[in-house]
Amino acid sequence: TTEYTFTDDEEARRAIEELKKRGLTFRYEKHGTTWRVRVD
């Protein structure tokens, strides 16, 4: 499991789109302004 942290909404959304394109399994949660994206 790899975890990424983003504080920029645009950056987080781009990363999420990219992961979807690659067909990877991931989860994300947003805490205030911080996004945590975990890739299995």
Rank of each mutant, 00 (worst) to 15 (best):
T1Q: 11
T1C: 15
T1A: 11
T1S: 11
T1G: 10
T1V: 14
T1P: 12
T1Y: 15
T1R: 09
T1F: 15
T1K: 08
T1N: 07
T2R: 13
T2V: 14
T2S: 07
T2N: 06
T2E: 08
T2D: 05
T2K: 10
T2H: 11
T2I: 14
T2L: 13
E3C: 15
E3H: 07
E3Y: 14
E3M: 12
E3A: 04
E3D: 06
E3N: 05
E3W: 15
E3G: 03
E3I: 14
E3L: 13
E3F: 14
Y4K: 02
Y4M: 08
Y4G: 00
Y4D: 00
Y4H: 04
Y4N: 02
Y4L: 09
Y4T: 03
Y4W: 13
T5K: 05
T5E: 08
T5V: 14
T5R: 07
T5S: 06
T5I: 15
T5N: 05
F6W: 03
F6A: 00
F6P: 00
F6D: 00
F6H: 01
F6Y: 10
F6N: 01
F6T: 02
T7E: 11
T7L: 08
T7A: 07
T7F: 13
T7K: 07
T7M: 08
T7R: 06
D8Y: 03
D8W: 03
D8G: 05
D8P: 02
D8L: 04
D8M: 04
D8S: 14
D8E: 05
D9V: 10
D9P: 13
D9E: 14
D9Y: 13
D9G: 08
D9T: 05
D9S: 08
D9A: 12
D9L: 09
D9M: 08
D9N: 07
D9H: 07
E10F: 10
E10K: 10
E10L: 10
E10H: 09
E10A: 11
E10P: 03
E10I: 10
E10M: 10
E10G: 11
E10T: 11
E10D: 12
E11I: 08
E11G: 06
E11Y: 05
E11C: 12
E11R: 06
E11F: 05
E11M: 11
E11D: 09
E11S: 14
E11P: 03
E11K: 07
A12I: 04
A12D: 01
A12P: 01
A12M: 13
A12F: 15
A12W: 06
A12Y: 07
R13G: 05
R13W: 14
R13N: 07
R13P: 01
R13K: 11
R13S: 06
R13A: 09
R13L: 13
R14M: 10
R14L: 09
R14W: 07
R14P: 01
R14V: 08
R14T: 07
R14A: 11
R14I: 09
A15Q: 05
A15D: 00
A15R: 04
A15K: 10
A15L: 14
A15T: 09
A15F: 15
I16W: 02
I16K: 01
I16A: 02
I16L: 07
I16Q: 01
I16Y: 02
I16S: 01
I16H: 01
I16G: 02
I16P: 01
I16C: 06
I16E: 01
I16V: 04
E17G: 07
E17D: 10
E17F: 10
E17T: 09
E17V: 08
E17A: 13
E17M: 11
E18D: 11
E18R: 07
E18T: 09
E18G: 07
E18K: 07
E18N: 09
E18W: 15
L19E: 00
L19K: 01
L19I: 06
L19S: 00
L19F: 14
L19G: 01
L19Q: 00
L19D: 00
L19P: 00
L19W: 09
L19R: 01
K20D: 04
K20N: 06
K20F: 11
K20A: 08
K20L: 12
K20T: 12
K20G: 05
K20V: 11
K20Y: 10
K20C: 14
K21V: 07
K21N: 08
K21Q: 08
K21G: 06
K21H: 06
K21C: 12
K21D: 05
K21E: 07
R22S: 09
R22K: 10
R22N: 07
R22V: 05
R22F: 06
R22G: 05
G23Q: 04
G23Y: 03
G23V: 01
G23A: 03
G23P: 00
G23E: 03
G23K: 05
G23R: 04
G23M: 04
L24N: 04
L24W: 07
L24E: 04
L24M: 09
L24H: 06
L24A: 10
L24P: 00
L24S: 04
T25H: 13
T25N: 12
T25K: 13
T25A: 09
T25V: 11
T25Y: 11
T25S: 13
F26S: 01
F26N: 01
F26Y: 07
F26T: 03
F26I: 11
F26R: 01
F26V: 15
F26P: 05
F26K: 00
F26M: 04
F26E: 01
R27M: 11
R27H: 14
R27P: 00
R27W: 15
R27F: 13
R27V: 14
R27T: 15
R27G: 05
R27D: 07
R27I: 13
Y28I: 15
Y28P: 01
Y28N: 01
Y28W: 12
Y28K: 03
Y28C: 14
Y28A: 14
Y28E: 03
Y28G: 02
Y28L: 12
Y28V: 15
E29I: 12
E29Y: 14
E29A: 08
E29M: 09
E29S: 12
E29Q: 08
E29N: 05
E29H: 08
E29T: 12
E29R: 08
E29C: 14
K30F: 05
K30Q: 06
K30D: 01
K30V: 08
K30P: 01
K30E: 02
K30W: 04
K30L: 06
K30A: 03
K30N: 04
K30Y: 05
K30S: 03
K30R: 10
K30H: 06
H31G: 03
H31A: 08
H31M: 12
H31S: 11
H31W: 09
H31I: 15
H31Y: 11
H31L: 13
H31T: 13
H31E: 13
G32E: 05
G32H: 03
G32N: 04
G32I: 02
G32S: 03
G32M: 03
G32R: 02
G32K: 03
G32Q: 04
G32V: 02
T33Q: 11
T33G: 14
T33V: 07
T33A: 09
T33F: 09
T33E: 12
T33D: 14
T33S: 12
T33H: 10
T33R: 08
T33P: 08
T33L: 09
T34P: 00
T34K: 06
T34Q: 08
T34F: 12
T34V: 14
T34R: 06
T34Y: 11
T34S: 06
T34N: 06
W35G: 01
W35E: 01
W35L: 04
W35F: 04
W35M: 04
W35Y: 05
W35D: 01
W35C: 08
W35S: 03
W35A: 02
W35H: 06
W35T: 06
W35K: 01
R36A: 05
R36C: 14
R36H: 14
R36Y: 15
R36T: 14
R36E: 05
R36F: 15
V37G: 00
V37N: 00
V37E: 01
V37T: 00
V37F: 09
V37S: 00
V37Y: 00
R38I: 15
R38Q: 14
R38S: 14
R38H: 13
R38L: 15
R38M: 15
R38W: 15
V39I: 11
V39L: 06
V39F: 05
V39R: 00
V39P: 02
V39W: 04
V39G: 00
D40V: 14
D40S: 12
D40Q: 12
D40W: 15
D40N: 11
D40A: 11
D40T: 13
D40G: 11
